[in-house]
Lab assay of single mutants.
Amino acid sequence: MEVRTIKVFTTVDNINLHTQVVDMSMTYGQQFGPTYLDGADVTKIKPHNSHEGKTFYVLPNDDTLRVEAFEYYHTTDPSFLGRYMSALNHTKKWKYPQVNGLTSIKWADNNCYLATALLTLQQIELKFNPPALQDAYYRARAGEAANFCALILAYCNKTVGELGDVRETMSYLFQHANLDSCKRVLNVVCKTCGQQQTTLKGVEAVMYMGTLSYEQFKKGVQIPCTCGKQATKYLVQQESPFVMMSAPPAQYELKHGTFTCASEYTGNYQCGHYKHITSKETLYCIDGALLTKSSEYKGPITDVFYKENSYTTTIK
């Protein structure tokens, strides 16, 4: 009895394709271990004539594949690729409408935090270190965002349907971005203890939790000093293409032309909904596939993004 075979390709990165001759009487799992086709788990399936010449994702289970996976995804987590594939199996079914010149995501599976993050990423200057993220990001900007969303979920250790947080998501993504040249110098002034300067680099240099107003941050924000008295913390120097200011959701007025974009969060910790506000020729609110415009805006804002380049204080 002759062994019926077909020729397929296996890959971990969709760049390096490895030619395989597979036995049609055995499952993919018996031949390769966990195997995925377009995100779908085909591990328990036997090869079919229609699979001839198709590319299958496999887990990096030998040295060659491990090197290829690390170079593309910059992670050695053995569960990463499987999590990416199972997320992709959902995100490829989502709709990605162009809204006001940006790629958004039609609401499904509690994905409003991903839509808000995706919209924000198209408006701030950011370059990702893992080629996987950078490639998928370019495709997302062009309207094909399924891979990018699935990668975000995998890097953030999230599953489809789980509630997510924009600030946490951005923080994970910033860790995989090139923020080497970003720098922030802060000064804390206390009447009792004097003053202390701190220099922050990388992710810490672009994120701040405690106030939404970048102007206020430049002037000074009140913080408790270690001595128990009130101290003032203010920005001395900022070198970065953008800054992200966050605070627990509270009524906040966004003035046209003073910011790049913002995240609105309605609801409580267990259950809520994100919308995205962007400042173009007027203010726009993007909620999944829905767009509304207004000249002014007041609502429960939790993150505001500002364009920056270089700032030095005039406070002496």
Rank of each mutant, 00 (worst) to 15 (best):
K219Q: 14
Y96I: 02
S25W: 11
Y208P: 00
S294H: 14
E71I: 07
T198Q: 13
G164L: 04
E296M: 07
N187Y: 06
I105S: 01
C190A: 00
T10D: 02
P249M: 01
Q30V: 12
N129H: 13
T266F: 07
M24H: 08
S171H: 15
H273I: 01
L118G: 01
G202S: 06
E215D: 12
W107R: 06
A247T: 06
P78W: 15
T313Q: 15
A146W: 08
T314P: 09
T198C: 14
Y234Q: 08
Q123P: 03
D63V: 08
K293M: 11
L119M: 07
E2D: 15
G299N: 05
R66T: 09
M207K: 08
A205M: 00
F56C: 06
I45S: 12
K127A: 14
T302E: 01
E68A: 06
L179V: 02
E68C: 06
F305Y: 06
D23N: 10
V22I: 09
E215N: 09
V22M: 11
G194P: 07
N187R: 13
P249G: 01
Q123H: 07
F9L: 11
Q196A: 12
K183M: 09
Y208E: 09
A250N: 12
D41E: 07
D287L: 00
A87L: 07
V8S: 05
Y73E: 04
L153F: 10
R83G: 06
S171N: 15
C261T: 02
V203W: 14
Y234E: 02
V8W: 02
L114I: 09
Q237P: 00
Q238Y: 01
G33C: 05
L151M: 07
T91S: 05
P131T: 05
Y137G: 03
H256C: 15
S240F: 01
D13K: 05
F305W: 08
V189H: 09
F242Q: 00
S246W: 01
K93Y: 12
E144S: 11
S310G: 07
K201P: 02
K127G: 08
L291Y: 10
V21M: 14
P300E: 10
Y57L: 10
M209F: 14
G53N: 15
G228F: 00
F148M: 13
Q230A: 15
L163E: 11
Q216A: 11
M209Q: 15
T27F: 11
L114F: 06
M170P: 03
V160L: 04
W107S: 03
A132D: 05
D41C: 13
M170V: 06
C261V: 00
K233S: 12
T199Q: 10
Q270I: 10
L126H: 04
G299H: 00
V67G: 12
A289Q: 12
N49C: 15
N110A: 03
M245D: 00
T103H: 03
Q238L: 01
K191C: 10
D41N: 10
K255F: 09
D180G: 09
S25L: 11
A142N: 14
Q196C: 14
T5N: 11
V58I: 11
E52D: 12
L235W: 03
V21K: 14
A145N: 04
D63F: 10
G210Y: 00
C225W: 01
F217D: 00
T43G: 14
E144F: 09
Y297P: 00
T292W: 08
T232Q: 08
Q123N: 08
T192Y: 10
E281T: 06
Q197I: 09
Q237A: 13
E264I: 15
T266P: 00
K158M: 05
N89L: 12
I45Q: 14
A142Q: 15
S295K: 15
Q20G: 09
V99K: 14
G101W: 05
T313G: 10
S295W: 10
N157I: 04
N111H: 05
Q251C: 14
N178P: 04
T312L: 14
G257P: 01
Y297M: 06
V21H: 13
T64V: 14
T103Y: 14
D62A: 08
N16F: 06
H276A: 01
P78T: 08
K46H: 14
H276N: 06
V243N: 01
V221H: 09
S240T: 05
E162M: 08
N147A: 11
R4P: 14
F242I: 00
Y72D: 07
L81W: 08
T266H: 08
S246P: 00
T116K: 00
P97R: 09
K316R: 15
V8C: 13
I223N: 05
H90C: 11
A146K: 07
L291D: 07
I223Q: 10
G267H: 09
M245A: 03
S79N: 08
Q134M: 09
F242V: 02
P131A: 06
T5E: 12
N187M: 14
M24T: 14
V8R: 04
S213G: 04
A262S: 02
T282I: 09
G272F: 01
T19I: 11
L118S: 04
P130K: 04
K229A: 12
H90E: 12
C193F: 00
M24G: 09
S181K: 10
H176Y: 12
C285L: 12
K233H: 09
A117N: 04
R83E: 05
N16E: 07
D287C: 00
L102R: 01
L283C: 09
T198I: 15
P60I: 07
A132V: 03
V166C: 07
V3K: 13
D63E: 14
D109R: 04
K233I: 15
Y84A: 03
D287I: 03
K229H: 10
S25E: 09
T282D: 12
A205T: 04
V42S: 08
N14S: 11
V22T: 10
T211I: 08
C193Y: 02
Y214M: 12
R66W: 08
T159H: 15
D303N: 04
A247R: 02
R141F: 08
A150L: 02
A108K: 08
G267K: 07
S104K: 03
L186N: 06
Y137P: 02
S171G: 11
T159V: 09
H48Y: 12
Q222G: 08
Y284G: 06
T312M: 14
F242Y: 00
T313L: 15
L290S: 13
F217H: 03
A250L: 08
E144N: 13
L291V: 14
E52Q: 11
M24R: 09
K218P: 01
E215I: 06
Y96L: 03
I223C: 15
L163K: 15
E253S: 09
R184K: 02
V304D: 04
W94Q: 05
L283F: 14
L59A: 07
K92V: 10
P47N: 04
E2N: 11
A205L: 01
K54T: 13
Y36I: 04
V3T: 11
